[in-house]
Every structure is written in structure tokens, then in C-alpha cells.
Design a protein around this nucleic acid. Structure first.
Lengths: 129, 129
DNA sequence: CCTGTATCATTCACCTGTGAACGAATTTCC
DNA sequence: GGAAATTCGTTCACAGGTGAATGATACAGG
């Protein structure tokens, strides 16, 4: 039963791979775009439901790709915030289109009612941590 | 939408962790129990839908846990087969009980019709590689 | 027979995730 | 004001996954 999720995830992963992204990297870019301002790594980790050490490495790789930059927070010298670069914003826009296409393709085989049930059921399974 | 799958998987993972197993390790043990005989690593990888290099490492860890043993195949000296140890068979049986309990708990919040739709829909999403 | 070619498991480098331990900075509370 | 607790990001060791390269074996065809 769980294999289906891996299957779908692998599809999105390989679609994003064509522009040098991954689901994890896209998640970070999307949160930065949504916020509209640089976010602290701890905040990004929390919104991504992962541990901080993971976000450290993810931002390392995004920085190596020149999609985000680390900037210091003058109001809290412990904190480091991740800021989108112009390239990062652009890459995110491309990824959105790719994911829309991939999503349509994956769910095309379901009818309207099945999609609705799936969405509702998965939300119920996921909401209680 | 995909977050729900990770949530459910994390639940099973933490349940299995109590007896020192993981979903991946359980998968290998289950395939060996089902086959009733030692299986070549390549065969195990194919049945687990993963690459061979991954199975090499997984069997490394299972062997370190003394749950399986590598045995040579006299009919093909390239091949290495994984054989269940008595401890492996026993651990598998414990895991089956744990997973049954965890599965019941997770799906208890769905009614009969929702479970049926979910099963059918996920099978359709997963079957076309 | 022997020269390719295919297949086996392994190793390596990498990506994504976790948790524990750490140093540095900030709060909190006497 | 200063000691203690908390919070920040990083580093490390690990689990689990991928793909590419490699050496050893098996299996063609000529």
C-alpha cells in the first residue's frame, strides 16, 4: 500500500531532476517564495517538518547551486537566514510548471469522486501527528 | 498530499524500531520467509523494487544483526544468497504482530468504504511504473 | 578454444533524512 | 550584574536510497 506513495514521489522527483532540483529543494524554495522574505533555518526546518541539521545540509546544497544565500540576522547573532537569489526565484517558477504538469498526468487516471475521497482520506491520516 | 504517506510510514517505522527493525529490513525478512529458501541478492533487490547496491548494504546490516547469513551458491559462483537465521525468522514473526496492531490503529479512523476506495486508488496509482 | 558480452555483487560518491553533542549567543531569574 | 537555562546553527555518525564504475564469473559465437 505504501509503495504507491514512493512511486508517485519518484515521478515528481525525476520530473524535477530535469532542472536540477529535488522535492526537498523545491520545498525550501517554495517556502521562501511564499514568505516573501528571508527565513531563519530553524523556521524553515519547522515548516518543512524536519530537523534542523537536515536544513543545514539542504541549504548548503542550495547555496552551492546559487539558488539561496545565507544572510546574517543583525537582531540575533545566533540566527542565519536563507534568502532567495534571482536564480532561485526563477528556478522555483519553472518547477511550479513542471509539477503542475506531472500532477495532472498522475491523477488523470482518477475520476473526480476518487480524487476527492483520496484528498479527504489522506488529510485525515496525516493530520494527527 | 504526499506528507500523509510519510506520516504513516514514520508510525510503522517507530513501531518496528522497538524490536530493532525498520520497514526496509522487514521487507527483506518477509520476502525470505515467503520464498521459504535463500534468495540471491539481485532477486531480493528486484522484488523490493530497489537497486542491487542498496540490497548489498541492507543485507550487510541484517547480517550484522545476525538475522540473515550470506551463503554461496555452488551453481553460480558470482551469486550470493541471503539465508534466514532462526533469529531472523523469529524477529519476522514479532514484526508481523506489531505491524498488524499499528495498521489497525492507523486505519481505524476510516470507515469500510473509505478503506476500500483508498486501497483501490493507491493500487491504480502504483501499478504503472 | 577464446574473445566478447552479459550478469553478479561490491564499492564509491552522492542525496535525504534522523538524533546526539557542541560552541556561541540570548534570555531568564535571582 | 552574573549564573543558569534555552535556543541557534553546525558537525558527526548513522540509516536508507540512487547511479556509475569495477572485478569476477558465466555464457554466447566464431
Amino acid at each position: 500500500m505504501l509503495g504507491a506513495a514512493h512511486e508517485v514521489e519518484a515521478r515528481l522527483e525525476s520530473a524535477l531532476d530535469r532542472i536540477g532540483l529535488s522535492v526537498a529543494k523545491f520545498g525550501v524554495l517554495a517556502k521562501l517564495v511564499e514568505a516573501g522574505e528571508p527565513l531563519a533555518l530553524g523556521c524553515l526546518a519547522e515548516r518543512s517538518s524536519c530537523v534542523r541539521s537536515n536544513m543545514t545540509q539542504l541549504v548548503d546544497r542550495l547555496e552551492a547551486d546559487h539558488l539561496v544565500e545565507r544572510v546574517n540576522d543583525p537582531s540575533d547573532r545566533r540566527s542565519v537566514r536563507a534568502a532567495l537569489t534571482p536564480a532561485g526565484r526563477e528556478r522555483h517558477a519553472e518547477a511550479v510548471h513542471i509539477l503542475e504538469d506531472a500532477g495532472r498526468e498522475v491523477f488523470a487516471i482518477l475520476d473526480e469522486e476518487e480524487r476527492a475521497t483520496l484528498t479527504r482520506v489522506l488529510a485525515r491520516l496525516g493530520e494527527r501527528s
